[in-house]
Amino acid sequence: MSIDRTRAMWPQIATVIVERIRNGTYPPGSKIPSVVQVANEFGVVNSTAQRAMEAVRKEGLTRSEAGMGTYVLRPDEQPPAT
């Protein structure tokens, strides 16, 4: 997926992260890149990356552990698909 810089960035970044989770780039139980790493990868400020990561968490695909990072939930930990 290419990023369209004429549109809001955070939803596009969230979509990329979700795609990476679904295609196994970030497998269940794995630690995903930090907010700073995501911001650097996409050339955005940390708050934009944080908003994208929060959107992914709200979809029920990840969990964050303070001081440890963000991890992909196993399928049995995720809410049912709607």
Rank of each mutant, 00 (worst) to 15 (best):
T62N: 05
S64C: 04
E41I: 05
P28L: 02
W10D: 10
E19N: 14
N46E: 13
G24L: 05
Q37I: 02
S2N: 15
G69N: 12
Q37H: 10
R51C: 03
M9Q: 11
P11M: 03
A52Y: 03
V45L: 03
T70K: 01
M1W: 06
R63C: 04
M9K: 01
S34L: 00
A66T: 14
K58P: 01
G69R: 12
S64R: 15
G29N: 12
E77L: 01
T15H: 04
P27K: 03
V36W: 11
I32G: 05
Q37G: 07
G69Q: 14
E65K: 11
V16K: 13
R20C: 10
A14K: 00
R51T: 13
W10A: 11
R20N: 15
G24Q: 09
A14C: 01
A39D: 09
T6K: 11
G60W: 01
Q50T: 10
R57I: 01
A52C: 09
G69F: 06
E77C: 03
T6R: 13
P11G: 04
E19P: 00
A14N: 01
S64P: 00
K31F: 03
A52N: 09
A8T: 05
N40K: 15
G24C: 05
V16I: 12
P79A: 04
I32V: 13
S64D: 08
R63E: 15
R5E: 09
R51I: 02
P75G: 09
Y26H: 12
T15E: 13
I17K: 10
R7L: 12
Q12C: 02
T15K: 05
